[in-house]
Computed example of a mutant assay.
Amino acid sequence: MKPYNDETLAALLADLESDRVERKESLRGGAPEAVREAVCAFANDLAGHAEPGVVFIGVRDDGAPAKLDVTDALLRQLADIKTDGNIVPPPSLLVERRSLGGHDMAVITVWPCDAPPARYKGRIHVRWGPRRGLASAQDERILNERRRFRDRPFDVQPLAEATQDDLDLLRFEQEYLPSAVAADVLAANERSREQRLAATKMTAEGGLRPTVLGLLVIGRSPSDWLPGAYTQFLRIAGTDLTAPVEDEAAIYGAVTDQIRRLEEKLDTHNRRSIRFAGVDRESRSEIYPMDALRQLVRNAFMHRSYEGTNAPIRVYWFDDRLEIHSPGGPFGCVTPDNFGQPGITDYRNPNLAEALHALGFVQRFGAGIAIARKALGDRLRFEIQPGFIAATIAGESHD
């Protein structure tokens, strides 16, 4: 992804009729909402330019500079558009301070997404000429047909022998659709169930074949088709795997069911102490902060590999530590050297990430490890290998 040079940006800025340009004087008032809608529309690239769209901040509608003070805080605010979880799948974009015609402005370059449609708060935004708005049913069909099968992520590839009978269609209608699609959009459209399944990437081939995503999110038994799509939990009364097992569970079902049941297990074993003596108000403590455990667990499900492995997610609770093992090593731009650094994230399963966000299991993309590290400090460490990533949390020190 190569950004535009100054000459190209200047030409785009001067073309007042271009459908690849959005201009804003500042980020005040309703501008943040409008900028996100524009980013979503450029990611969808309804016109099929196959080239980036650009949002200029600090420019009037007529192309004249607004003489905006382009601060680092403004650039950070704009960069948050990628990871704040409102546009899914997360857009590919670059935020820069650029000087054009002797005037500074903030420039957001947005590349078309590989697996449209992208949605902002459950709505599909597109552009027709210099105007933008919500996608019609025909627009949405065009975007759905444009998805590239050969280059698609594994999580939206269809499974040839699976059928709609392998999906929980009641769950799709009552749980997933209301979470993933805005209520007014859902009420207004007249699509068939097959069209809705295809539009949300739960199926392919005209709504007939479940995708990996469909089986993971609304499948009746995902592990029948993806052997590693389950979770193994062990509570071990000791400090190594040869010690007696105090509790164990193999957890099957849709990804969200596995997350809920695993978190219930962790909460049960996370015994709390309550202190009354010597304090004005009772204080409660837990062995491991549950908020941090939730972030690490959900990260494991979102980023693990479901392809080419029969390994489950493994959670081992020892007397002195807790380990979470996730199949699949670093992916994309994430490496062992930059793993966990703020702002460095990539998605092996971008559509599963979108689904977990819609269902409320992910609030902000790219923040899970940072939140866990803030809560756990030096107690948290990672082992990063080509085939797996393991998070180890040391137990409480009693020194």
Rank of each mutant, 00 (worst) to 15 (best):
R141E: 15
S221R: 13
I218N: 07
E145I: 00
L186F: 01
V156Q: 04
T231D: 02
V110S: 10
S192Y: 06
V217A: 02
C113G: 14
V212H: 12
E161W: 07
E161A: 15
N144W: 09
A160Q: 13
I108S: 01
H125C: 10
P222F: 04
L186K: 13
R220Q: 12
R98A: 01
G206W: 06
W111G: 01
Q174W: 02
G219F: 09
V110E: 10
M202C: 06
D224A: 14
I108K: 02
E190F: 12
S192P: 06
R171W: 13
V110I: 14
P210Y: 12
D104W: 02
G219Q: 14
E173Q: 14
G122Q: 04
G133W: 08
S192G: 14
R131L: 15
E194T: 05
R127A: 09
V110N: 03
K201V: 05
S179K: 15
G129M: 10
L93F: 03
Q195T: 13
V110H: 09
L216Q: 08
Q174R: 15
L94S: 02
A180Y: 11
R123S: 04
L93M: 15
Q195L: 10
R132P: 06
R196Q: 14
L170S: 09
I108W: 02
R209W: 05
E175M: 10
P222S: 04
D168M: 07
G101H: 07
E173L: 12
